[in-house]
Amino acid sequence: MRYGSESALLGGHVSDTSSAPDDRFGNLYGANFGPLLGYALRRAATAEDAADVVSETFLVAWRRLADVPAGSDARLWLYGVARRVLANQRRGTERRDRLGERLRHDLAAAVPDHADLLTARADLTTALARLGVVDREVLQLTAWEGLDPREIATVLDMPAGAVRTRLSRARARLRRELGDDRGVDGHVAGDPLTSAPRNRRESS
């Protein structure tokens, strides 16, 4: 069994040119565990799903370490993987591996009110939920992950110019939505942001 360098994990020092894959992965993991877990928690229906997204994404990174880009693009690469893992969850596909039992357990215990929190936020993000999927993703990646258009383009595999256009338009659309006080009635049920993926999974 090979373990990563704990000092690297704790220190969060990223050395992309490390000669040892174990060290490189340890650094990658340490530097990105928090951001990736945040990405997953902000989007997944349950804490367990968020844990699965983190586990699967890092497993892919471990197996494809040579393909993980260096520098800050590594996080974009991870977001891109996580996005697909989330999409798979929503389509109801089964997990291939079953890693991260402890993370699933501890995370569920750490955020016992996850579903309530999402429900509460759903009221606040009603306007966001009215947007199209792509507009919403562009806005979320900008505001929640702090990505710029070039980075979003990498995650979504869109031309950067198209992201800029999208972002500008999506902002305007969101502004109009927020300026239109429609209350909960205006919420469109079934939107990915505000409805539980597990419900869609069951119905699919």
């Binding site: 586990s55 750490a110 505001a143």
Partner: peptide, 25 residues
């Protein structure tokens, strides 16, 4: 006018997951 995320990065970093994080690694 983007709504705040349900979790901030600080929220996430404060979660008591050190052992789970290490175990997953």
């Amino acid at each position: 006018p983007m709504p705040e995320p349900p979790y901030t990065d600080d929220d996430v970093m404060a979660l008591p997951l050190d052992r789970a994080r290490q175990e997953l690694l």
